[in-house]
Simulated assay, not measured.
Amino acid sequence: MPTALKSLHVLALGLWVGGAAFFNFVTAPTIFESFKQVVEAGPSDRTAFQPLGRPGADAKDKAALANALAGSAVGPVFPRYFLWQLVCGAVALTTAAAWWRLGGVHRWRVVVIGGAVVCVSAGWPLSDAITRLRVQRFDPDRAVAEAADAAFKAWHLWSLGLSTVTVLLAGAGLAMAAKLPADERPVGGSGPF
Rank of each mutant, 00 (worst) to 15 (best):
L8Q: 03
P55M: 01
E33Y: 11
A73M: 10
G171K: 05
G53R: 09
L169M: 13
G191D: 08
V17Q: 02
R54K: 15
V74P: 03
Q37R: 14
V77K: 01
I130F: 04
A175F: 12
W108M: 06
G115V: 06
T27Y: 08
L93A: 14
A59M: 07
L86K: 14
D128T: 09
L65A: 11
T95C: 05
R137L: 01
F35E: 04
A64I: 01
K60S: 12
A178R: 13
G123C: 06
L160A: 09
F193E: 12
A178W: 10
V110Y: 04
A147N: 02
A148E: 02
L13N: 04
G14L: 03
N24D: 08
W158V: 14
E40S: 11
L86H: 11
A97W: 15
A116C: 10
H106A: 05
G103W: 02
F49M: 14
D58L: 07
A21Y: 09
L86S: 12
A154R: 07
A48R: 15
K62P: 05
H106T: 06
W108V: 02
A4W: 03
H156K: 12
A122D: 03
W84H: 13
A92V: 14
T94Y: 01
A48S: 14
T95W: 00
D149I: 00
K62V: 02
A57V: 05
T95K: 01
V167F: 06
N67R: 08
A148T: 06
N24K: 03
E33W: 08
L162T: 12
P2E: 11
F49L: 10
T3K: 07
F32S: 02
G189S: 14
A90F: 08
A64L: 08
G14W: 00
H156S: 01
L5D: 02
L8Y: 01
T164M: 11
A151K: 13
P186Q: 05
T166A: 11
A73I: 00
A172S: 10
I31W: 04
M1P: 05
V38E: 00
R46N: 09
A64K: 10
G171Y: 09
A20W: 06
W99N: 15
V144F: 03
S163H: 13
W124G: 04
T47K: 07
V110C: 13
G19Q: 11
G19Y: 07
L168A: 14
H9V: 12
A28D: 07
P79G: 09
L13W: 00
L93M: 15
A172N: 00
A41M: 10
A182Y: 08
L102V: 07
A96F: 01
A148P: 02
A151L: 12
A170H: 01
A145F: 08
G42Q: 08
L157F: 08
R134D: 11
E40K: 08
V118N: 06
G115Y: 06
L174C: 09
L160R: 13
Q136W: 03
R80P: 01
A28E: 10
G115Q: 05
V167D: 01
V112I: 13
S7H: 03
F82A: 10
D45E: 08
R107E: 02
L8D: 00
V17N: 03
A143Q: 15
A116N: 06
I113K: 02
Q37A: 15
A150Q: 07
V110G: 02
V87C: 10
V105W: 08
V187F: 00
T131D: 05
R137E: 03
